Computed example of a mutant assay.
Amino acid sequence: MEAPEASFLELVRQRERGKLKLYIGSSAGVGKSYKMLQEAYDMRRRGVDIVVGFVETHARADTEAQLRDLEVLPRRRIEYRGVSLEEMDVDALVARRPQITIVDELAHTNVPGSRNGKRWQDVLYLLDEGINVVSAVNVQHLESLNDVMQRELGVLVRETVPDWVVAQADQVVNLDISSEDLRQRLREGKIYRAEKIEAALTNFFTDENLSTLRELALRETANSVDRAREGLIRREDGPGGAGLAPRTVDRLLVCLSSNPPLSRVLLRKASRIAGRLNSDWYCVYVQTPDERADRIDATVQRRLVDNIQLAQSMGAEVVKLEGTDVAATLVRFARERGVTLVIIGQSTRSRWHRLRHGSVVDRLIAGREGLDVLVVSLFDEAEATLLSRADLP
């Protein structure tokens, strides 16, 4: 069987822009950094010019041992609020220009003063410079899973990676480990320091949480395989092997309302669906006369802007439309842009209001425009209130 690093090297040789290989794990401690360094050492022995751009060993002896005599790029020191902090030196890495670099912790937020705000932006910059990257991320850091983490695990993840960044990976590898083996690694002090072990076992590293995270990580890896397979089929089915076969869903749109907490749920749902279908997607906000900037609460306006920025970070094309009839405006836009799937949240209007005036949801479903409509069931009012008050990234 061909070694994983060998298949990645084949990808590396295919085009000038850098290739991205991504390890996805269910949580800290599954061995992502260890595996990347092991792979780096194996490729170095085969004559590949590879540099460790940034790896955080967290003082784990097994991981530090994997550094061996690998070339490690010196870190850049940045002064911030009277403290000297270390970050990956992106400019030095571009100047060094290795064939492949190892860049750990894709979701990391860089210190102010760095070239980019997030490490995933550093990685995209390196790829554009023609440098191939091997990186890693835990599944809970995927932006579209943010609400799932909070709702199912009670964890608010502040550092996230847009799903479209993961979707760009040329190779995705899941590092899976059983929940009990991972808990045993934790007990042995191979993940956290001794004073944090008991709290971690009781809170985050429970069998139920780890099982949920393992399932999500496996599902994300499976989705990446499906995207790669579809891409191969599309290339082979076209004229001369270079054309595109029709997609199941050409384009989809998600309706952004002025109710920001619920909109975040919809955006993450749409991002996941667009990724699985390998489809372009739009985030559409229809501004009615009653929702002009001078007529809605300043807090709602600010959160609406935040959600627009969130949609853009997820890879959506954000479109603002104006109209008195929201449903008709959406249908007209869908027809013009070739949208075949509309994602919308269930109506929050009272039953009396819906009976008297109808709702956007009802009118889209009853329409005869050939649109598929997915109505997303939103969480309860208490969770919406919690989300609206949370300082989400």
Rank of each mutant, 00 (worst) to 15 (best):
V111L: 02
G82R: 03
S33L: 07
Q38T: 09
S313H: 00
D325W: 05
L85Y: 03
F54L: 11
D104V: 12
S377R: 13
V286M: 04
L266S: 00
S179D: 12
C283K: 03
D325Q: 10
A92P: 06
L145E: 08
L371M: 01
V51T: 10
D325H: 11
A390R: 12
I177V: 15
Q66I: 05
A327E: 11
L304W: 07
N223Y: 11
V286P: 01
G189F: 11
G243E: 14
R247D: 15
E208K: 08
E188L: 13
E381F: 10
L145G: 12
E16S: 14
V133Y: 14
R45A: 06
A199L: 09
Q301T: 12
R46D: 07
V173R: 09
D325V: 11
A298T: 03
A311D: 07
A328N: 13
K21E: 14
K196M: 13
R115L: 05
L218H: 09
S271K: 02
V165Y: 06
K190L: 12
V300M: 03
V265M: 13
D294N: 06
E105C: 06
I177K: 07
L37F: 10
L106Q: 12
R332H: 04
V103M: 06
L156D: 04
G323D: 05
K118C: 05
L11P: 03
R183N: 01
I100Q: 04
L153M: 08
E79I: 00
N278E: 15
V90M: 01
C255G: 04
I296K: 01
R351W: 03
R368G: 14
L210R: 02
R363S: 14
G243S: 04
T221K: 07
G31P: 06
P74A: 14
R234E: 12
R295H: 14
A334C: 10
T202C: 10
S258P: 11
N223Q: 08
D91V: 10
T101L: 00
S359L: 01
V52N: 15
R151L: 00
M43D: 07
L374W: 15
V225A: 13
L266M: 13
R46S: 12
V373N: 00
K269N: 06
D163L: 11
V157A: 00
L364M: 08
E198W: 02
V52T: 11
A245L: 09
F204I: 04
S33D: 13
C255V: 13
Q38V: 07
A328R: 09
E159R: 12
G189E: 07
L145H: 11
L124E: 15
